[in-house]
Design a protein around this nucleic acid. Structure first.
Length: 508
RNA sequence: GGCGGCGUACCCAAGUGGCCUAAGGGAAAGGUUUGCAAAACCUUCAUUCACCGGUUCGAAUCCGGUCGCCGCCUCCA
C-alpha cells in the first residue's frame, strides 16, 4: 500500500528534467501519485542490450518509487505498425501483424528473463486507433493540422513553443525531404495515406495508418490523462519524437503534456577505424552493431546485466565492451559472497556489546549497516544515482569481509551483521541480490561453463581426482590437477568444510 | 552548419563551490594467510580532476577561451 494512503507522505526526490536541463525537486500532479509513460519497442526485430538499458533503468526507478511510498502508474507502449515492420514483413513474406505479434511475444520473454515488473498498461498502436483518430481530428479542428492527399500533417508553425525540449529553434529546424506534399518541410505526418498492399484503417481523410509520433500522444492520454508526471525514453528520442509529441499533445489537450522528461543515455561501442583510431559510437540497429538481450543472457545471469547498467548513472553514455558483462558479474559475485559470509555468522546478544567485544572492524560493520538505509535513500533521491548507491554497498561489503577475517567473527558476529544484511536486502529495490547464494552460484556456473564451452562432468572428474591426490598427500599431482583446472578457468578453493570451486570471471 | 552533452588514475566510474590531501569496481605490485593455491584482508597505485586564463578567502566543481570526443538534426532505447 502506498505510504500516502497510510498517512505518511512519500519520500521526496530530485530528478533531472530534460526540459529545464537541470535537476529539480519532483512534485507530482496528484499528491502521492506518479504517472510515467515510457516509449517502448517498435517490434520488427529482437530487442538488444541498448533497449534493455532503458527498460532496466525505468523498471528499477519504478520499483524504487514504490518502495518510497509512491503510487505509480507506469505505461509502456508497443509500436506494432510502422514502415520498418511492413518492410521486414514484406521481405520475409510474412503478415505484418503476425510479425509484430511474434516480436512482442519475443520481447515479453526478454522482459521475463530480465525480471522486469510488468507495466500497468502496454497499449498498442493497432488497438488504440480510436484514440489516435480522435486526437488527429481535434488537431485538425483546432487548425494545428491539415489534410493533404489522404495524409494529415501537423503544422509546426502553429505551435510557438516548438523546439523547447531539444533546444532547436523552429526557424532552424530543417526536416528531411519527407514524402507527401506538405505545406512546410518541417511539418510531420499524423496520418499516412495508405499505399498499395499496406495495412490500413479507415479514417475521415481516407484509409491509412498513424504517423510515428501521434501514437504516443494518444496512448499517453488515454492511459494516463492530459498531463502526465514523467515521460521517459532513450536520449535519441528527444528529437524529433518527443518534440513532436509535445507539440501534438499540448495543442490537442490545451495544457502541458509531461512535467518531467527523463532520458537515459545510450550504449556505446568501441569502433576501430581504418587508420587505427579508436572511438566510441552508439549501439543502434541502424548501425548494425547490436547485441541481443538473449545473447547477453546466455553469457551471464540477468542480475549481472542489471548491475552493468546500474553501476553507471542512467544519463551517462555506457561503453559496451567484451568483458563489461563478466566484470559486472564479478562485482555481483562479490556482493553475494559477502552476504553469504555474513549470513553464516552465528552468535547472539546485544549488537553493540558484541561489536565492542569483537573490535573496531565489527563496530565499523555495525555502524555502516545502520547508516546504510539513509545514505542509500539519499543517493537514489538525488537524480536516481544508482552508481553512488551501489558504491555504498561495496563499501559495506569490504567491511563485512574484513570482519569475517577475524577468528571469532563466524561464531559471534551474528548480531553485528544484522543491520548489514538488512542493508544488502535493500538492493532488491534495484532488482539485485534477489536470490539465494546457491541459486546464484549454480546459474553462474551453468551459464559461464556453457558460454566457455567447458564440460561440467569433466570438471567434476578433475576435482575428484585432485581431492584424492590431496588425501594421498600427493602434492605434485594435486598441483598438476589444479593447473589443469586453472587452464579451464576453474578456481579451486580448499576450505575447511571441503573443496569449493568457481569460475574465474575476470581476465588476469 | 544548427542544437545538446562529455573529457576524473592502466580500464570502468561517483563526486558539480569548503566534509575532496577525489567514493566504488576491475587490473597491477608487495604483504598476511595457505602443503601449494584461491578467496578475503592490509599496503601501494590521481597533492590531482583535458589544457590555458579568470571569479572567489576557497574550484574537479562557477565564468571565458583552446583542444579532443559523443549524441541529435533521417528510423533508433
Amino acid at each position: 500500500m502506498p505510504a500516502s494512503e497510510a498517512g505518511a507522505p512519500p519520500a521526496p526526490f530530485r530528478l533531472y528534467n530534460t526540459l529545464s536541463r537541470q535537476v529539480e525537486p519532483f512534485e507530482p500532479l496528484v499528491p502521492g501519485h506518479v504517472s510515467i509513460y515510457a516509449c517502448g519497442m517498435t517490434v520488427y526485430d529482437h530487442a538488444h542490450v541498448g533497449h534493455a538499458r532503458a527498460f532496466v533503468v525505468f523498471d528499477a526507478f519504478v520499483r524504487w518509487l514504490r518502495t518510497g511510498g509512491w503510487s505509480v502508474r507506469f505505461v509502456r507502449n508497443y509500436t506494432d505498425v510502422d514502415d520498418k515492420i511492413i518492410r521486414r514483413a514484406a521481405e520475409l513474406g510474412e503478415d505484418p501483424f503476425a510479425l509484430a505479434q511474434r516480436y512482442i511475444d519475443d520481447f515479453r520473454a526478454d522482459c521475463d528473463a530480465l525480471e522486469l515488473a510488468p507495466p500497468e498498461a502496454e497499449p498498442r498502436v493497432t488497438t488504440s486507433m480510436d484514440d489516435i483518430l480522435a486526437m488527429i481530428g481535434e488537431l485538425v479542428a483546432k487548425g494545428h493540422a491539415y489534410a493533404q492527399g489522404g495524409s494529415v500533417w501537423f503544422r509546426v508553425d502553429s505551435f510557438a513553443d516548438y523546439g523547447q525540449l531539444s533546444g532547436q529553434r523552429p526557424d532552424k529546424v530543417c526536416a528531411a525531404p519527407d514524402t507527401g506534399d506538405k505545406a512546410d518541410p518541417r511539418d510531420f505526418a499524423l496520418w499516412k495515406a495508405a499505399k498499395d498492399g499496406e495495412p490500413s484503417w479507415p479514417s475521415p481523410w481516407g484509409p491509412g495508418r498513424p504517423g510515428w509520433h501521434i501514437e504516443c500522444s494518444a496512448m499517453a492520454r488515454s492511459c494516463l490523462g492530459h498531463t502526465i508526471d514523467i515521460h521517459g525514453g532513450g536520449l535519441d528520442l528527444v528529437f524529433p519524437h518527443h518534440e513532436n509529441e509535445i507539440a501534438q499533445s499540448t495543442c490537442a489537450n490545451g495544457q502541458p503534456f509531461s512535467r518531467w522528461w527523463m532520458h537515459n543515455g545510450l550504449l556505446t561501442l568501441v569502433k576501430h577505424t581504418a587508420d587505427g583510431v579508436v572511438q566510441d559510437v552508439k549501439m543502434g540497429k541502424s548501425l548494425g552493431n547490436v547485441v541481443n538481450i538473449r545473447d547477453a543472457l546466455q553469457q551471464v545471469p540477468a542480475e549481472a546485466l542489471r548491475l552493468y547498467y546500474l553501476q553507471a548513472h542512467y544519463r551517462s553514455p555506457l561503453p559496451w565492451t567484451d568483458d563489461a558483462l563478466t566484470e559486472a558479474l564479478a562485482m555481483l559475485a562479490r556482493l553475494y559472497e559477502a552476504r553469504e559470509l555474513a549470513a553464516r555468522m552465528q552468535g547472539e546478544g546485544d549488537a553493540d556489546r558484541v561489536a565492542e567485544a569483537l573490535g573496531a572492524d565489527a563496530q565499523e560493520v555495525l555502524s555502516l549497516g545502520r547508516a546504510f538505509p539513509e545514505r542509500f535513500a539519499q543517493a537514489l533521491a538525488d537524480d536516481f544515482n544508482t552508481s553512488a548507491a551501489l558504491g555504498l554497498a561495496f563499501e559495506l561489503t569490504r567491511a563485512l569481509n574484513r570482519l569475517a577475517n577475524h577468528k571469532k567473527a563466524a561464531s559471534r558476529g551474528g548480531p553485528v551483521v544484522g543491520p548489514a544484511l538488512e542493508a544488502l536486502a535493500h538492493l532488491s529495490v534495484l532488482g539485485l541480490l534477489t536470490r539465494t547464494s546457491e541459486a546464484f552460484d549454480e546459474e553462474v556456473k551453468d551459464k559461464r561453463l556453457a558460454a566457455l564451452g567447458i564440460d561440467r562432468a569433466h570438471v567434476e572428474q578433475l576435482l575428484a581426482q585432485r581431492t584424492q591426490a590431496r588425501a594421498d598427500k600427493d602434492w605434485a599431482r594435486a598441483d598438476a590437477l589444479r593447473a589443469e583446472l586453472d587452464a579451464l578457468r576453474i578456481v579451486v578453493m580448499d576450505r575447511p568444510g571441503g573443496v569449493a570451486w568457481k569460475l574465474r570471471l575476470t581476465e588476469g
